[in-house]
Amino acid sequence: MADATLRVLLVEDNDDHAELIRRTLGEQEWAPQIVHMSDGESALDYLYRRGAWVDPDQSPRPHVILLDLRLPRIDGLDVLTSIKQSADLRRIPVVVLTTSSAERDIIHAYDAHANSYLVKPFGFEEFRNLMHDVGVYWLTRNTVSPT
């Protein structure tokens, strides 16, 4: 890991939620660089380096992907499936971060090989604590697979 920058790919259609996540993660001393995509299609464009993201320098691999499930154009589950079926991408941890606690979504997510499934909590402190834990675990404790 020559490049010491921690990177998070945030796929979130709700701008307010994206801002909350960005702020909570930015407060940490290990604050990561956050790439925000507001729909499934542009997230996949970034990961597969298509369109505006052809240049690998412009689209470095994230250490973790925070993925919402309900997304415009391409649904979060389809994005997850696509990542986990790609030989290049499947080792990147995908943390599903959603408002849905529906059993169906949890099962589908794990069936599609999600690495973690988190429900966005109500309450400011709860939200901050969760994002702190996610950051600490996936960015500082977890060892990323060598590419």
């Binding site: 939620h17 909350l20 408002t99 966005k120 901050r128």
Partner: peptide, 21 residues
């Protein structure tokens, strides 16, 4: 019901979060 509950939760999370900030 599924969609509605999901989409109704979103603004609540937003409100709670930004009230904290």
């Amino acid at each position: 019901t599924y969609t509605a509950s999901h989409d109704l939760r979103s603004p609540l999370i937003t409100i709670q979060g930004f009230l904290g900030y």
